[in-house]
Design a protein around this nucleic acid. Structure first.
Length: 580
DNA sequence: GCCGTTTTCGGCCCGACTGTTTTCAGTCG
């Protein structure tokens, strides 16, 4: 298989990191990281460029990196990369994943004390051998230990975005096998949990096809290791360490198995207990008569929905099966009409090359239009976000001019002039009053000084919510799933304040964030707070993050009407007090 | 290592925070 641009980007990225570890010139390693970023999101035909000797026409690729790419394209590996790898033990690269440890410190630990893995690092920290190394002290030692704890805690958990694409690919592969009747993803992935532990795939097929299905599954691309290989159940480890189970059942059992393996456990317990009231026992294969006294014949169920209907319930969407009142609502017939991706008319909070995005304003707008949207809100970073190339007032002016030109050119599609304004530590915004007035909407977010008490953080955010220029609060807790807890906030107070001041709250749909958490969506909606599903896109591809945001919204019982960016262009203009 | 109408050398994003120091290096976003 030819080496992909993503593969090449990965090698360049690692070369950059290895150079950092070796203490090379930071700008040299940065050049590799920059090149990796460029190629990672590029569709350029690198083989052709290599053959035509034109790799250096790509921004950020000079003679040196061009040679490495040529090597990779022709031979599949790079001698530079191999040599660098030889000089650094593999465990040392893992140490960089420990928050608080960067290349300098890792290098010092490796070179002066000989620590070459996270396991050795833990030993050394526990034995207080780190304090005393120049630059390391008691506190650093403690921080390293708690970082290691956190890393281990999250080691067997995965973002929905790492699981969903591979699960989808596997599913389509299996569906193609002759004899397969039905195939579905089950488990937490089907419930669209933000973090999942494994992928569950369920299949019904003709008995004669079962062994072919199992074979195809265990030999599928992306399977790293076969953990178990049986007739009805196999388990594999996918690349990246994600466990994946496949179960095969009879077609008549499929609805029951699907319900059972979709969970949640708590939801299943409640459903089974309800079945008991009807005189049936429910397991992953069927309804069976149970209990004494009056017995009704168990109902036939062709589809999963038949199970719910047999129990006097309307069909409960998988996302709601978390035992948070869904059975009661299904009994009353008052389940929400959950929002769907097709309800979205546009989105807010996107970045462009003006700040830290990878695609231009025009490319982002084109991509939004291709998604069938009517509008796109651009919210590049404000000036204090220097790390993200935050805009200066002059550059804002330029961007607004560009937006005016693009808007004049297109009918029925509008780019909104927004900003992602940093909330400073005192709760004021990173723009003057007069600057704020120039934007059509403002997303206010925190990007600095995360270590606050809950009271301080809450007060800081509420001050921003009260600011009349703030349209919506961006990623309200700042969490990075599996990496970092959010700043501690009193979410109820924040939502209450948003309701009082008519400020919206973002559902940041970046799969690393998914913030506002779905557990708070219902409360926000009940209080009348409008939510906005924002991809926080840093590229045209990032716009598709909204599908993860839809998952959050659906888990949070939201209907289209609760979400700002389901509104028509006209309604959005009205809400933002813009003459359309 | 990359780049360039201030160009072939000398700069490359920068401010805040933390923990270590006693004026600063490393990390992060």
């Amino acid at each position: 298989m030819p080496i992909s641009n993503a593969d090449i980007a990965e090698v360049l990225e690692e070369i950059g990191t290895l150079l950092e570890l070796k203490g090379e010139n930071v700008f040299k390693s940065r050049a590799f990281h920059a090149a990796a970023r460029t190629l990672g999101s590029s569709t350029a035909d690198l083989r052709r460029h290599a053959d035509e000797n034109s790799l250096t026409s790509i921004q950020g690729i000079g003679k040196g990196i061009a040679d490495i790419i040529t090597d990779l394209v022709r031979n599949g590996t790079s001698s530079v990369h191999r040599e660098l790898r030889k000089s650094v033990p593999p465990g040392v690269l893992d140490m960089l994943k420990v928050p608080g440890l960067g290349p300098k410190r890792v290098r010092q630990l490796y070179e002066s004390v000989g620590i070459k893995s996270t396991a050795e690092l833990r030993d050394a920290a526990e034995q207080h051998r780190l304090a005393g190394i120049p630059g390391f002290g008691e506190k650093t030692e403690q921080n390293i230990l708690s970082s290691l704890d956190r890393l281990e805690k999250y080691a067997d958990r995965f973002l929905i975005s790492s699981a969903a694409p591979v699960a989808g690919a596997l599913l389509s592969l299996l569906k193609e096998i002759p004899g397969v009747r039905r195939a579905e993803i089950a488990g937490s992935l089907r419930r669209r949990k933000e973090i999942i532990g494994d992928i569950d795939i369920l299949i019904s097929c003709a008995p004669s096809a079962a062994s072919a299905v199992m074979k195809r599954f265990t030999e599928a691309p992306g399977v790293d290791r076969i953990v178990a290989h049986g007739k009805t159940k196999s388990s594999v480890l996918l690349a990246g360490g994600i466990p994946c189970d496949l179960r095969i059942v009879r077609d008549s059992e499929f609805p029951f198995a699907l319900a059972y393996f979709t969970g949640s456990k708590e939801h299943n317990v409640a459903v089974r207990s309800r079945a008991k009231d009807f005189g049936w026992s429910l397991n992953e294969y069927a309804f069976t008569p149970a209990g004494k006294g009056k017995r009704k014949a168990p109902p036939r169920c062709r589809e999963e929905g038949d199970i719910y209907r047999a129990l006097g319930l309307s069909e409960i969407p998988p996302e709601l099966r978390e035992q948070t009142g869904e059975l009661e609502a299904a009994e009353r017939g008052s389940l929400p009409r959950l929002i769907q991706e097709a309800d979205l008319r546009g989105t807010f909070h996107c970045h462009t090359t003006a700040s830290d995005g990878r695609d231009t304003l025009e490319a982002m707008a084109d991509a939004a239009r291709q998604l069938g949207w009517d509008y796109l809100g651009i919210a590049d970073h404000s000036k204090v976000a220097a790390y993200a190339n935050g805009l200066t007032p002059d550059r804002v002016k330029l961007q607004h001019r560009e937006i005016d030109i693009l808007n004049a050119r297109s009918r029925g599609f509008r780019i909104f002039k927004g900003t992602e304004a940093d909330i400073l530590s005192d709760g004021t915004l990173d723009w003057s009053e007069s600057m704020l007035e120039r934007f059509e909407y403002v997303v206010a977010s925190i990007h600095s000084k995360f270590t606050m008490s809950e009271q301080e953080a809450t007060r800081r955010i509420i001050r921003a919510i009260k600011n009349r220029h703030v349209t919506m609060l961006g990623h309200p807790t700042g969490r990075l799933l599996l990496q970092r807890d959010g700043y501690p906030v009193n979410m109820k107070e924040i939502i209450d304040a948003a309701a009082d001041f008519g400020t919206m709250i973002e559902i940041n749909a970046d799969p690393h964030r998914l913030d506002l958490d779905w557990r708070w969506c219902r409360y926000a909606a009940e209080k009348g707070v409008l939510l906005s599903i924002n991809p926080d896109a840093h590229s045209t591809a990032g716009l598709k993050n909204v599908s993860y945001g839809i998952g959050v919204a659906r888990k949070g019982w939201l209907e289209a009407g609760h979400v700002f960016n389901t509104h028509s262009l006209k309604a959005v203009c009205a809400q933002l007090s813009i003459n359309s």
